[in-house]
Write a protein that binds this DNA or RNA. Structure first.
Lengths: 242, 242
DNA sequence: GAATGTATCTCGACG
DNA sequence: CGTCGAGGTACATTC
């Protein structure tokens, strides 16, 4: 537990203001003059929100950031700017400049320490389930082991088919091209091992993107769609809310 | 059950409240009782923020969402709940339930329509600029087209060199190994097309990581560093911040 | 700390 | 409307 975090006032400042915003960092971005919500958090970070397009701020500065206000020059005053906020991140040299024209609301609130989010039932233990239901690969398949180690990392599942031939399975929640590349590297390596070769590949996922499927099948890798709910059994539904 | 107090146009409502939050959708999640900022946007979406961990809300509901309040039952009243907010998304059946224990601040603000963010310096800009300045690939190069479609996706730029040979260009802001892999897949596919083959590859980026450069050159792919500022300078533009 | 994989990803573009 | 790729991805976990 860090004492430093406790020493700070856990406050959030909410400002509704007509403002324009400029950001310079990895890219440049500009927000023309409009009324927005500015949220200043305890760690110096700043979020600029509009009244729609949830989740993502229009613009922001990530912590740790330093906040300062500077006086507008005469030209800016003439343009209607009353105050300029400068938010900078020393490490990345990112800079967020908020030109305030008019503050319509300004309040600060003590929030206290948040116990944090508890997630539940996310972790697709697809791997565990598929290992337990290895026959989903096809009749007569047997499990050799999960997390079969190779020189470049663990293959999710190594199995053998009815004829005793090795089968390497890569499991993803969403099957993307990256996953196919990953499995391809494993297969290339494993097929150099005379104890294993020939090794066939199975790309298993709850959802397989068409391009990934195309690439996989082009490389002789079989695609297997996994039905998570069916595999988990319909017994435990996450109806904790009702 | 009374319907949304939030059916107003272009407004954002800010509430500071002691509350607990439950979410059920792709996953289940729970936030224990604590003081948080609740942001209700005009489109019915809701964000639950703490005073740190910028950018991402602790919990949220994406638009389009419908908002309603329901009265707590006796058990909930005994537990200190004064009000329950229910935010649901019809399409996905996601549900966010906020159990309000105490409201410490409550204000609503008219924001108006936001003109939106103007971005500058992303991959699309690089692609446009390189297409316009195709001679950066070398003397005598000509543009065939941007976003040349293949079965596994569009190649950023297809050009021909002074001898009329095809050149496939993959453009990245930051060139790492993934980009080289991507270009390699395109090249492999395109080289099967007798109308195109042989196709040479060029990996163009503002910044190319050493590992990516090594891999690319090992595969006969030429690396090209792009100077965005210089390229933009040949075009017409201006820096806004200073 | 760097690298890797996931995400209630979000968001835009394009067919 | 789906699909696909990029993101100032953000964020957690592992090496």
């Amino acid at each position: 537990m860090r004492l430093g975090a406790l020493a700070y006032a856990r406050r959030v400042r909410l400002v509704i203001a007509r403002c324009s915003v400029d950001y310079a960092g990895r890219l440049s971005a500009h927000l023309p003059l409009a009324t927005r919500l500015l949220m200043l958090k305890a760690d110096g970070s700043v979020l600029v929100h509009s009244d729609s397009l949830s989740y993502k701020p229009l613009n922001w500065m990530s912590p740790p950031a330093t906040f300062s206000t500077i006086d507008p020059d005469q030209e800016q005053v003439d343009a209607g700017v009353s105050e300029i906020w400068k938010v900078s991140q020393a490490k990345t040299a990112d800079l967020l400049v908020i030109s305030i024209h008019e503050i319509l609301h300004d309040s600060a609130h003590e929030l206290g320490i948040d116990p944090g989010l508890q997630k539940d039932g996310v972790e697709a233990d697809l791997q565990k389930l598929l290992a337990a239901q290895i026959e989903l690969l096809g009749d007569g398949h047997t499990l050799v082991r999960r997390e079969y180690m190779t020189a470049i990392g663990p293959v999710d599942i190594l199995a053998r088919d009815a004829d005793g031939a090795a089968v390497a399975v890569e499991i993803k929640r969403r099957g993307d091209i990256d996953g196919v590349e990953q499995l391809t590297r494993y297969l290339e390596l494993m097929n150099r091992d005379p104890h294993l070769a020939p090794v066939r590949g199975v790309f298993a996922a709850q959802e397989i993107k068409p391009q990934a499927r195309t690439l996989a099948e082009d490389r002789g890798i079989r695609c297997l769609l996994l039905d998570y709910d069916a595999m988990r059994g319909l017994d435990d539904s996450h109806s904790r809310l009702f």
